[in-house]
Computed example of a mutant assay.
Amino acid sequence: MAPGRVKKTENEQPSSIEKKSIEVPNPHLEKMKEDILYHFDLGTNSHDFPALFGDVKFVCVGGSPSRMKAFAQYITGELNLGDPKEDIPNICAGTDRYAMYKVGPVLSISHGMGIPSISIMLHELIKLLYHSKCCDVTVVRIGTSGGIGIEPGSVVITSQSVNPTFEPQFEQIVLGKTVIRSTKLDAELAQELIQCSHEINEFNTVIGKTMCTLDFYEGQARLDGAICSYTEEEKMQYLKAAYDAGIRNIEMESSVFAAMCNISGLRAAVVCVTLLNRLEGDQISSTHDVLVEYQQRPQKLVGYFIKKSLMKK
């Protein structure tokens, strides 16, 4: 290493003034004659990645295929790139694992539910961006969550994802050994998003920690699953301790999302609406129409952010 240069660790983000290229820390990829992104139904020999995706600057990911199609249609109207009511083709139509929609410089992709599902999608998404020679890409997870101590319908911008023991790390088992990776997210991006919410001024938005769990029921201290081995008092003690630790919502994807984006040099954020306050109950009881409106809030916020960012450029 040249004198005066500082070695960058795997979790460091490039400087904001640098041109952020996609980093793929896998030397084996260069030896492959073809890279097949199996779960996307795409391949480097069968598709021209730079031509198809080289202009991508924003990637928005979320659990539900229908929600991500709705976001693609919404951003179509926001960016004046067509009729938002028109159907948008699913790029991954050849597979039933994920759905992907492209609107100008924006990709909208579903990731399913839970860490395993989103991690598979992220591996292939990161390689897609790398093969496409993309740079300066911002990735945002938009989704739903359970709130802790905040009113339903509030939007949480994640400052840092923590595990169920409130530690800011993601543990991956590799070759039988535990690898620990940072789950810190881009603080500057979080501030830009909260400013956008202030400008929209339509719903409550906060920046806080997000707890990422492996399960919807016991892992999130619910009393209404098929199995429960703790009391209501123990549940409340746990959730109140989470609130005291700065946690404002619970979901099931943010830790691996933050870790993988960190390693790949991607500017990333998690923006989730809360469907209920877990200090007041476990089951989601709001009407369908209310839930639909709640789910549109992260889309509005991120859509506004994308439009504002493109106008600046």
Rank of each mutant, 00 (worst) to 15 (best):
T9L: 11
P27N: 01
H28L: 14
I36L: 07
N26R: 09
K8R: 13
H28E: 13
E30R: 10
N11K: 07
P27W: 02
F49A: 00
P3R: 05
I36P: 00
S15P: 07
H28F: 14
I17T: 15
S21K: 14
R5Q: 12
S16T: 14
N45M: 12
P14S: 06
E30S: 14
S21I: 10
N26D: 13
I17G: 05
M32Q: 11
S46P: 06
E34S: 08
D41P: 02
K33C: 05
M1H: 07
P3V: 06
Y38I: 02
Y38M: 03
P14H: 02
L37C: 03
K33M: 07
G43T: 00
G4T: 02
N45K: 15
N45E: 12
P27H: 04
H28M: 11
M1L: 13
E34C: 04
P3H: 05
P25W: 04
Q13W: 07
E30L: 13
K19Q: 11
I36H: 04
H39I: 04
D35I: 14
M32Y: 07
V6W: 07
N26K: 02
E30P: 03
P27Y: 05
L29P: 01
S21H: 15
I17E: 15
V6F: 11
K7E: 08
K31T: 15
M32D: 08
S15D: 15
S16E: 15
P27D: 04
G43W: 01
F49C: 03
F49G: 01
D41I: 00
I36R: 00
K8P: 00
K20I: 02
N45H: 14
E30Q: 14
E23A: 13
F49T: 03
F40H: 02
T44K: 01
N26H: 08
L29G: 05
P3T: 04
G4H: 06
M1Y: 09
L42T: 00
P25S: 10
L37D: 02
I36M: 01
D41C: 06
E18F: 08
Y38D: 01
P3Q: 03
L42A: 03
D35R: 12
E12F: 04
I17Y: 09
H39V: 01
P25L: 14
D41T: 02
E12K: 01
Q13N: 08
D35Q: 15
D35H: 15
K7W: 08
K19M: 09
T44M: 04
S21M: 13
G43Q: 01
